[in-house]
């Protein structure tokens, strides 16, 4: 299968800071790649380079077979970009925004109007079509943003943190639309800090940290890497947490994460559970809660970086502020 996106040894410096440090990516046509990482990991810089907005410091990137530097104009003909930074004109109505993009893509006036109306229908914006975009809710704006990047029926779509700032319902709606696009054959590269978003949408996930790829694979593969399941236990007395952690480490073979009274550790053998309970009981450690849960991508991130995943409390905090 042809690769829609091919990135080799991509490096991008801003002043003295290296935002992207040797990234390789391959996205087969029709696939959805999730670029996952915390703020400042370099996700936006990668997207902006692929969308021809930034020149790489080193390395090469081809989008749809075209080099993003030497054949930037060709790349722009086949891509769509939606993100924190590619936005719509707030003073124009939704319809005017889409007509403008259509005209800039070389559509005749009538074609541009027809395409705008079609997209407004597809994205449930018909009623708001004549209102300035500045009156739109967050979800409506994002839908307008997304439809603006679809005017030219792009083969390759870049979504930079598409659900940042959206409420859960609007986020589900957006996910559904991304799935529809994928079903229609569009290649999608999306960046996200939401681990469950990558899990829900992406065929392949690439985890980015400090400008480097630290892991890649399907969501299932990444979860398997941390042992598939997580044992968690809550001790009744906080002062026993450290002792419990040591005993669990001895049995499981991995140093657990301790957070207050809660201790968690990836495990491969679920039958350890009763043994752990007996062991702690014998050591006089009082257990308030004990159980197993399937590993989340949060656990994946933790095991890869030693840090927790996205700063979910502050979606929209400036990524890649370089």
């Amino acid at each position: 299968m042809d690769n829609a996106i091919e990135v080799e040894g991509l490096v991008r410096d801003f002043g003295g800071t290296r935002a992207v440090d040797g990234v390789d990516l391959r996205v087969p046509a029709g696939h959805v790649l999730g670029l996952l990482g915390p703020n400042g990991a370099g996700k936006t810089t990668v997207v902006r380079t692929l969308a021809t907005l930034l020149a790489p410091t080193a390395g090469t990137a081809r989008v749809g077979g075209f080099d993003v530097v030497r054949e930037a104009a060709r790349v722009r003909e086949i891509i769509g970009l939606t993100g924190q930074y590619a936005s719509v004109d707030e003073k124009l109505t939704g319809r005017e925004n889409l007509i403008l993009i259509g005209r800039l893509l070389g559509l005749k006036r009538r074609e541009a109007r027809a395409r705008a109306d079609e997209l407004l229908g597809d994205f449930d914006l018909r009623e708001a079509a004549q209102r300035p975009a500045q009156t739109y809710s967050g979800g409506m704006r994002r839908r307008l943003d997304l439809s603006a990047s679809l005017v030219g029926r792009p083969r390759i779509l870049f979504l930079d943190e598409p659900s940042t700032g959206l409420d859960p319902r609007a986020r589900r709606d957006l996910w559904e639309r991304v799935r529809q696009l994928q079903a229609g054959g569009t290649t999608v590269l999306l960046t996200t800090q939401y681990l469950e978003e990558a899990d829900a949408l992406a065929d392949t996930i690439v985890v980015l940290d400090h400008g480097r790829v630290i892991a890649k694979g399907t969501a299932a593969e990444l979860k398997a890497r941390v042992g598939g399941r997580t044992l968690f236990l809550v001790v009744a007395r906080p002062e026993q947490a450290a002792a419990a952690s040591d005993r669990v480490a001895g049995m499981v073979g991995t140093q657990p994460q301790v957070d207050g009274e809660t201790i968690s550790v990836p495990v491969s053998d679920p039958s350890l559970l009763p043994a752990v309970l007996r062991d702690l009981d014998a050591a006089g450690i009082e257990v308030a809660e004990l159980g197993l849960r399937g590993a989340s991508l949060d656990d994946v991130f933790l095991s890869l970086t030693g840090r927790s995943g996205a700063s979910r409390e502050e979606p929209g905090a400036g990524e890649d502020a370089a």
């Binding site: 004109d89 800039l104 603006a148």
Partner: peptide
């Protein structure tokens, strides 16, 4: 306004001349 709101980036990602 275009620069700070991201509209300029959307234009730059379209196949139009840089000066347009």
């Amino acid at each position: 306004t275009d620069l700070t709101r991201g509209v300029f980036d959307r234009f730059r990602a379209l196949p139009i001349p840089r000066w347009a």
